[in-house]
Design a protein around this nucleic acid. Structure first.
Lengths: 222, 222, 222, 222
DNA sequence: AATGAATGAGCTTTCATTCAT
DNA sequence: GATGAATGAAAGCTCATTCAT
């Protein structure tokens, strides 16, 4: 983060000191970009491995090996395994929040928003790093970080719940126990991460559409 | 599984082999019963701890301490931690199978059976050891044991799926993608284990009823 | 410590329950003795190595190697390196306290007691594990343990100071700044640990006598 | 030591080689001065930190951070941590030697010189970098450097011893075991570093005077 | 059947040092 | 002269498992 700032600041100085060759600046910017790129590479590699095997089954050595570097090099980018893991959660949260924001801003009755959330979630869980939030365990984290993560989770839940409540208010959704309904929907969605295979028979969109129907229309004939 | 049967089976054989002095037999029976009781105590204690903290966060020492015995003593009853864990899965499977059997034998349309399954599952997850099957990770197990566990899971899924198909056949359930519908329902149910607190505001029955409605009737007004 | 008590307690029970074969008790006692002996061996080996090289230069592996066992075996006797180190301090404290108690109980003017303390200290530092208290660093210990150790040190200082004050009171010692006098004496004594070699030219008694004189009579001719 | 001399020496050579344009020389001198200044800054910062926390508890990173530079930059001034540490000892030695020289050159009986040494030492230990020699451990150094440091220490000891011998010769000091007397005095002095706090109740001069009395006049009434 | 003791393999983390730039 | 990045070597500690008793 501090590095993000250093870049612009340096750029300012550059404008007022035009003697320095542009190439030098390029170097600094490039270096910073490279650093961020590497940091991101570590993060994504770790997230992939954590998702595939569970975070406690992935040793720092494993991540380093996968990246072709040595273990201590990881500590240039993340101060600890916990830090790395919690950063995965943060990234995941950000991605999810963006989707929820987008849907919230859209017009339409609550029911449609709920269905949009379901479709978005299906995608998040299957192709994006949104699944980190759902599938990785936060129990190994120290209290303070675990609470942070749980805060994210609660916030997401609250927003889905609010969408359902909005739907009830605007008449598009039947009155029901909102909390339980939210749990049921989130559970169904989260579970996708357990069985989905990208080389399986179902496309992401197909799953999203089907779930959107199934979880809102029900199965019963009448 | 094999061990559950061995106990009773052994007792049967004893009854049908009355030549040895009764007292001796009684001793043998008693000894065997004691062994089975202790074995079961280990199993249930381990299952509880595994569920509460996740199996990889429970050391063999922890289990032994909880039972007031020493670590190596555990190995008299289970040959390894994996063995103990897989046995938890087997017990869980048995409990689940019993419920599915009971419901399958009952009369009524497929929809009602499905609802009965949902109610039974809600109970299994919250109060019985059925939750082991759903909430414990099988990823730490060696391939052969993990495959065994996954077989159980697939079988359970298949039976729920068959129930839905039966409901479609008898007209009580709308035609739909059965596989996805099953996944959605099972996901919603399994998720209960993530948020349920026995001291929380929802009773098991309340959850079962609400889920049975929600997952079959849907949320949409029409 | 708790183990010291278990022995006697067990012996009591034995007397009132004479049915059990003595051999069993012997075994238990023997085993306990062996355990204590081993624990002590670890402690003394560690203390020696800590004194010789400084505690931070001694790895757990080094201690284990010296004892001919493996690293984790050490953890059967001490829960951590800190635990091992602080136990060294506790042993050292006990030895010192015993000497101070003995001298305190003796008759004689304060000056004689002070000289006795100097002689005793010279011995403690050179041949007994009393030197641990003086020569090992407590700065690597976590706060709580470091405070414990500093408490010991303060208590020892206080007792020497009290002895000097007693001497001033009974007229055998000249009035002076007691705190500084104590520091000077303790410093001179503690320093012995820095230069003393058991194969050197000075015997322990020689050092003790000379220091007792030097630190109380001074060097000046008048 | 070698580096301290190299600076001035280099400057001397410059003055005696006037052929090159003065401006260039000035630059070179300035550059050299700057380098020496930076080198000294590193040295003093390191010495402070080593004294405060013990050299093995101070990482190169810590020193760099304290100076606001990066770790590898340190290696421009010192070839290794050992080099840095031994240079601290050399500086310390120089300061101590200067004091001993000054006192040796003064007139007066041996006893007065000894008292002057005690007063000077009290100051060295509490306010100057003289304490490095006494309070820092040389055990982490490789043999060759450790021997160098021990040479310094022995030389200092020898000079104190010589002062006492001079006092015995001139009749101002009572005959005694000079070696042990020296050890006792040095020990008492060195220990000051363990308890002295600059914000404590004792001023440096007070300590020096009191120690000068206590260590030469003794405590005993007769 | 149960115990105390021990082990091997593994984990996260630290740190002095080097190197390309 | 200084930097960011990387490394090899080591440290303390944990844990499932085994073994003699």
């Amino acid at each position: 983060m501090s590095n993000d700032k250093r870049g612009p600041l340096a750029a300012d100085r550059l404008e007022s000191a035009p003697r320095r060759p542009a190439s030098l600046w390029k170097n600094a910017v490039t270096r910073d970009q490279e650093r961020q790129a590497k940091r991101m590479a570590v993060l994504l590699t770790a997230a992939d491995m954590f998702l595939a095997r569970g975070s406690h089954r992935v040793a720092m050595t494993d991540i380093a090996d996968e990246l072709g570097i040595t273990k201590p090099a990881l500590y240039n980018y993340f101060s600890s395994k916990d830090d790395l893991l919690v950063e995965c959660f943060r990234q995941s949260n950000q991605v999810i929040i963006e989707q929820l924001d987008r849907i919230e801003r859209s017009a339409g009755p609550g029911l449609e928003k709920l269905r949009a959330i379901i479709r978005a979630y299906a995608r998040l869980i299957t192709v994006d790093y949104g699944s980190v939030m759902i599938r990785l365990e936060d129990r190994d984290l120290p209290d303070i970080l675990r609470n942070e993560v749980r805060g994210y989770k609660r916030a997401i839940d609250a927003r889905v719940r609010a969408t359902i409540e909005g739907g009830i208010a605007d008449g598009s959704i039947l009155p029901c126990d909102v909390k339980l309904a939210t749990f049921a929907i989130m559970g169904a969605l989260n579970w996708i991460g357990q069985w989905f295979r990208s080389d399986g028979p179902y496309s992401v969109d197909r799953i999203g559409d089907e779930y959107a129907d199934r979880l809102t229309k029900g199965l019963a004939k009448n």
